[in-house]
Design a protein around this nucleic acid. Structure first.
Length: 452
RNA sequence: GGCGGCGUGGCCGAGUGGUUCAGGCAAGGGCCUGCAAAGCCCUCUACAGCGGUUCGAUUCCGCUCGCCGCCUCCA
């Protein structure tokens, strides 16, 4: 039974779908105005892990994640590059999915685009105006936070204290500095859609309300996103739903930021590492492992040193997989002792304690290796398979050794013959040849093992 | 100013009121091996500081110092 830290209550809460139904998960996706950075990568990994884990336990998931494809940032970039805003959005989204595929992420079941839901958003805005929760002024339609008695629930601050800290300028006509724009009236040259308030485009906070409720339904189980979205984005989503009289997310989860030298990585600060860059230079699994080795709510540093350490760790997983593949009688290994799988689930169910879960996995890896090296091969295989299964449950797959070329296989068997004849010079020479071909060479009880 | 979080061994990074432990990386020693690689074993015994509670605190409470996040766009 999964329990997660719920941002709304501040406590661990059981997150559960109705019997037999998929667990409905909504995650705030990217605004596509540039290539994804490693912070986006972490986010996608966190929810990929959650989703895979749930599915592994037999709980299906209905995962929706939006794509904000119309927004000031996109429009501004289009303006400065003298290009069509749609082109920016499309190309940025492409690079997004490219990176996600490279990371081995299961795509969300649905990826709604803001521009596809504008009529629905206009409808919601009209309803909010009709209910007195929104008002129109010169430049747009604004939501009145005063209309929601428990505004500040996610921020854990009363309206008054949020207002006193507000750094945002009071737009002319806004009733409260915290009021936020629902509909932006178009200026000349800006993309626009028709509405009763004149041509314009929606503000950012409305799309997620319309898409999540529309695609998942009221009271969907879980809404996620970066901790920086708690306020105001998620607060404002929720405020709209409340003002509409609709049940919104039952639970909220927020993941921590990627930091650089202790400071949040953000495009606005300029300390951003491109995700594509990282994936080009590292085994993408290393980033997944790095994410798994820290808790999702904690901030993480992603440095070359850490990625290198993670890659080394991965090598333990991969070498175990090679060993299992060759273990004599592996097919006859006894059924896995459920002990590890049970404790693994316990750790995961406790607010996705992936660091401890991973510690258990690597503990099991070590134990499996010890058994395999000793006289309990069957036990080692069973234990090893458990370890690999747990890793796979969170999307971490041991590398499947590349198919060895005929030439390499020939070199390997010649080396075995040389070794049998104790012709070490020839054996070492053959090993060098294999290495030159890009293979790694290990000796095993059954002879030379080559892999890439 | 308000709200929230953090400070752990050479590095990263978990966790807990008390016997033995996170885990990984790195380092050193050993085993195995013709050598190497992989693997296994051992070593490296830390919890910012100061008080308090307690039979006992890294873990609870208070204070101090340092750092960070949110309150504006942001994953």
């Amino acid at each position: 039974m999964l329990r997660l830290h719920d941002t709304a209550s501040g406590r661990l809460e059981v997150v559960r779908a109705p019997e037999g139904a998929p667990l409905r998960l909504y995650v705030c996706g990217p605004t596509v105005y540039g290539p994804p950075h490693i912070g986006h990568g972490r986010q996608s990994l966190v929810y990929d892990v959650l989703r895979r884990y749930l599915e592994w336990t037999g709980q299906p998931v209905h995962h929706v994640s939006n794509v904000t494809d119309v927004d000031d940032k996109i429009i501004n970039r289009a303006g400065s590059e003298l290009r069509d805003w749609r082109e920016i959005a499309e190309e940025s989204e492409q690079s997004w999915w490219q990176a996600m595929d490279l990371m081995g992420l299961a795509r969300p079941d649905e990826t709604p685009h803001a521009t596809e839901f504008i009529p629905g958003m206009v409808e919601v805005i009209e309803q909010l105006v009709a209910r007195g929760a929104a008002y129109e002024i010169d430049d747009g339609v604004y939501f009145s936070v005063a209309a929601v008695p428990d505004y500040g629930l996610l921020a854990h601050q009363p309206l008054e204290s949020l207002r006193s800290g507000a750094r945002v300028e009071v737009a002319s006509g806004k009733r409260s500095p915290l009021d936020f724009v629902l509909w932006k009236k178009a200026k000349p040259g800006e993309p626009s859609w028709p509405s009763p308030f004149g041509p314009g485009r929606p503000g950012w906070h409305t799309e997620c309300v319309v898409m999540s409720l529309g695609l998942l339904g009221e009271g969907f189980e879980l809404h996620g996103g970066g901790t920086d979205l708690k306020f105001p984005h998620h607060e404002n989503e929720r405020a709209q739903a409340v003002a509409l009289g609709r049940r919104f997310a039952a639970h909220w989860m927020h993941h921590g930021m990627v930091e650089v030298g202790g400071a949040k990585m953000a495009k606005s600060i300029g300390n951003v590492t491109d995700l594509g860059e990282l994936l080009a230079s590292t085994d993408p699994r290393a980033y997944r492992l790095l994410v798994l080795q820290s808790h999702y709510r904690a901030p993480i540093e992603v440095t070359p040193v850490q990625l290198e350490a993670a890659s080394q760790t991965l090598e333990r997983l991969d070498s175990l997989a090679r060993r299992l593949e060759e273990a004599p009688g592996g097919e006859l290994a006894p059924a896995a002792d459920p002990g590890l799988l049970e404790s693994f689930r316990e750790r995961m169910d406790d607010d996705l304690d992936t660091p401890r879960a991973m510690a258990m996995v690597f503990d099991a890896v070590r134990l499996a290796n010890a058994l395999l090296a000793g006289d309990d091969v069957a036990g080692g295989v069973a234990r090893g398979r458990q370890a690999l299964e747990c890793a796979a449950a969170v999307g971490l797959r041991a590398a499947i050794p590349a198919v060895v070329s005929e030439a390499a296989a020939e070199l390997a068997s010649r080396r075995d013959r040389a070794r049998a004849e104790r012709d070490w010079a020839a054996a070492d020479h053959l090993r060098d040849e294999l290495v030159a071909l890009g293979y790694r060479v290990e000796d095993t009880a059954s002879g030379t093992r080559v892999y890439r």
